[in-house]
Amino acid sequence: MTPLIKSFLIFSLGLGTTLTFMSSHWLLAWIGLEINTLAILPLMAQHHHPRATEAATKYLLIQAASTAMLLFATTLNAWLQEGWNIIQIKDQTATILVVLALALKLGLTPFHFWLPEVMQGLSLTTGLILATWQKLAPFALLLQISYTTYPPLLTSLGILSTLAAGWAGMNQTQLRKILAYSSTAHLGWMVIIAQYNPHLTLITLGIYVFMTMTAFLTLKETSSTKINILTMSWSKNPVMATMMVLVLLSLAGLPPLTGFLPKWLILEELAKQEMATVATVIAMSALLSLYFYMRLCYASTLTLFPSMTKLKMPWRRLNSKRTNIVLTIATTMTLILLPLSPLISALAHIYFN
């Protein structure tokens, strides 16, 4: 793929998401989602590999089904309520259908089965776009209608997402699938709190984007896609392996890393809403996610690569002086933002109020 075509596709990705952000009309939001979907398909299939083609086909079918359901639900609401405004959706049936369509787009449980399979067929760079940028536009729509929807619906989707993703990720050896389940689990936390504190949801989404970006970029630097390849990272680059461990622990939500901040604030907000049972369930589900994160940490630092194996050793570049500014900034924000949590909360409160 030539740089000009790739630049045009990336520009189209930004255009589709921005159009959805700026739209107050359901039809314009739908157009933005379609532009977003059509722009990422060539990026998925650019390597001309059967798995990449299969992943692009699956993604196209899933996104087409979800956008068709979204268009049907908004048309139903416009027919009954005579309005296309996003924040004025009032019909309960249409609202539930919209939430389910957006859950299918985001990969929330029970519609999450397509996400690990699609992620497995992509490169780490395209998987990064799918796990971060492609979540923004659907989540923005979900956040706008969260106050009008049926509250137990979002709560159920969030609890099921955290439990199912944590349970399914325990038995995985493919790193891209593990990060896909991690995406579903983190979105489950955001969906639960979206109806009570949208500002906290945006903070959680921003931190999730930086943590996931750091994880994908670190895996790309070490050329790791499976756990048995991850065992070679310590002998190849000890500093990068150490950073990988800290990033994984931040994704797990352990203090004093940044990933502890959103979980702590979400549990605090649920306690204020007198939802102790929900807070307990999602806190226990975080232990499931912690298990497979710790499994990756063990594989990357405490397990030596076997000396007798048929797996080919990747080429090791020595004295590489290339610097990655994006990875440096993302790693810094993933690891050391927790002491700034009072400042972040205060600034978010001032900005949104």
Rank of each mutant, 00 (worst) to 15 (best):
P3T: 13
S12V: 01
S12G: 05
G16K: 03
T18A: 13
M22F: 13
S24T: 08
W26C: 10
W26F: 13
G32F: 11
L33V: 11
T37Y: 04
I40F: 08
P42S: 05
L43P: 10
M44I: 02
P50K: 08
R51A: 11
R51D: 15
T53H: 14
A56P: 06
Y59K: 09
L60D: 14
L61E: 09
A64D: 08
A68W: 05
M69V: 14
F72K: 01
L76A: 14
N77R: 02
N77Q: 06
Q81E: 14
W84V: 06
W84L: 04
N85W: 09
N85D: 08
I87A: 15
I87W: 04
D91R: 00
T95D: 03
L106S: 05
T109Q: 08
L115I: 08
M119S: 15
L122M: 15
S123E: 14
T132H: 05
L136C: 06
A137H: 09
Q144M: 12
I145T: 03
Y147C: 08
T149D: 01
Y150I: 05
G166Y: 01
W167V: 00
A168G: 09
Q172Y: 02
T173I: 01
K177F: 06
I178Y: 01
L179D: 07
A180S: 06
Y181N: 01
S182G: 06
H186W: 00
L187W: 03
H199D: 13
L200R: 02
L200G: 07
L200K: 01
A215T: 03
F216H: 02
L217W: 15
T218A: 06
T222N: 11
S223E: 12
N228G: 02
T231Y: 03
K236A: 13
V239A: 13
A241S: 15
M243E: 07
M243S: 07
M243F: 12
L246M: 11
L248N: 14
P256A: 07
P262Y: 02
P262R: 04
W264A: 11
L265Q: 10
E268F: 12
E269P: 09
M275Y: 09
A276D: 13
A279Q: 11
F292M: 07
A299Y: 02
S300N: 07
L304C: 05
W315I: 06
R316S: 13
R316A: 12
S320D: 06
R322W: 05
N324T: 03
N324W: 03
M333L: 14
T334K: 00
L335C: 02
L337D: 05
L340M: 15
S341K: 01
P342V: 03
P342N: 07
L343T: 07
L343C: 02
I344H: 11
I344K: 00
L347Q: 14
N353A: 14
